[in-house]
Design a binder for these strands. Structure first.
Lengths: 204, 204
DNA sequence: ACCTTCATGATACAGACGTATCATGAAGGT
DNA sequence: ACCTTCATGATACGTCTGTATCATGAAGGT
């Protein structure tokens, strides 16, 4: 057998290049050639590791989602253990608001793909749906746990609250990326929301 | 002077064609030629009425926003007058959740443009920012009014609640269009949210 | 030493796109 | 009747895109 390179690593490098390109110029600016240039390889190599553009996109999306999932778990692990549900919900908010470049990129890409999925049924089967759904289940579990330990009022519906929180953070993320909101303002709104959900409001 | 057609009407017709095309195939499928075909005119005519593609996009966006604004006001006008703030907030929720084709199209296009604006500073000056900001002010006014008449607890911040409500509905809209949520479910979440905001929650 | 297989380069091809150019009906002022 | 101006058609140009093809180092098994 002739010389063999690490395909996994090559593919990851190219996926990273795609993500950087899309983050800088938008997903519409992602072409085989622009990705190749960003990765510092020839067009042929991108073709070699990803036969088709669709395959490249798909792989990059998985790459991105895995990356984000790892980041979220690292943030959870960084919390003093055992962390109360409230702390973990605030960690979620901190992770969900695009303040640093990495989460900004993630939100941009995710929304870009989501928009494509709105008119492409084939794309709608991809992780835009499975990724957030897993996250939503995690949030629902977290809220269920909060209800058990008493920090969430008993009459709340964890599943509905999870859906609401996720939709809110998605909306806030979009507002931040379009420049309508500062990250600080978005974080303030999201944290206010979490506190309202957990504590309810004092009766008049 | 030779025969003269109604330029305003022609332009509106072409903008409608763009909107239909984008609604069916996505904004990335909008080309001078596809819009011309959808409008049933020649490519030259699209060029004639909109010198550049950027101009066409811009005009279509204004067209869309005006359309949506009119729709929202019509819905408000259809309410028995004087409608209490709560009723108008629920009307907003009903309008914001993409259930019929028209609001589905609006949400899709708005999000598509918002995604483009995330990497194009020139686009970010367009009505993605001014449109929602006007809406947010309207909502804030509505909530201020609700606070005055007592349906919103006095310790709530109308501006923050407006931001929160708007972000939530945007997020829910996206979830509906990607098929993650049914319109009914999204509406339920949004109405639950409005009720929570207005009434607070009973003390434990 | 050689041959097979992996990895990469160079280049070509067909189509679509935005834009520009040239031409031509059509209608009203003079 | 004619001529200017508006409105529209046909078509061409250059560029970019995804994909395909042909060629060639490089390395290990035999």
């Amino acid at each position: 057998m002739p010389r063999t390179v690490d395909h996994r690593q090559r593919r990851a490098g190219i996926c990273d290049a795609l993500v950087r390109t899309a983050a800088r110029d938008g997903l519409h600016a992602v072409t085989m050639r622009s990705v190749a240039a960003e990765a510092g390889v020839s067009l042929r190599l991108v073709q070699y590791y990803f036969a088709t553009k669709g395959g490249l996109m798909h792989a990059a999306l998985l790459h991105l989602e895995e990356h984000s999932h790892r980041r979220w778990n690292e943030r959870l692990a960084a919390l003093p253990s055992p962390a109360p549900a409230r702390a973990r919900l605030h960690a979620f908010v901190a992770e969900a608001v695009p303040d640093d470049e990495e989460s900004r990129v993630f939100h941009l890409l995710w929304t870009s793909f989501a928009v494509l999925a709105m008119t492409d049924p084939a794309l709608a089967e991809q992780p835009f749906v499975s990724g957030p759904e897993r996250l939503e289940r995690q949030l629902a579990d977290l809220l269920e746990e909060a209800r058990t330990d008493g920090s969430l009022p008993a009459d709340r519906d964890p599943a509905l609250e999870a859906t609401r929180l996720l939709a809110l953070t998605h909306g806030l993320g979009t507002d931040v990326l379009t420049g309508r909101l500062t990250p600080d303002r978005a974080r303030a709104v999201a944290e206010y929301h979490v506190d309202r959900v957990l504590d309810g409001q004092p009766a008049p």
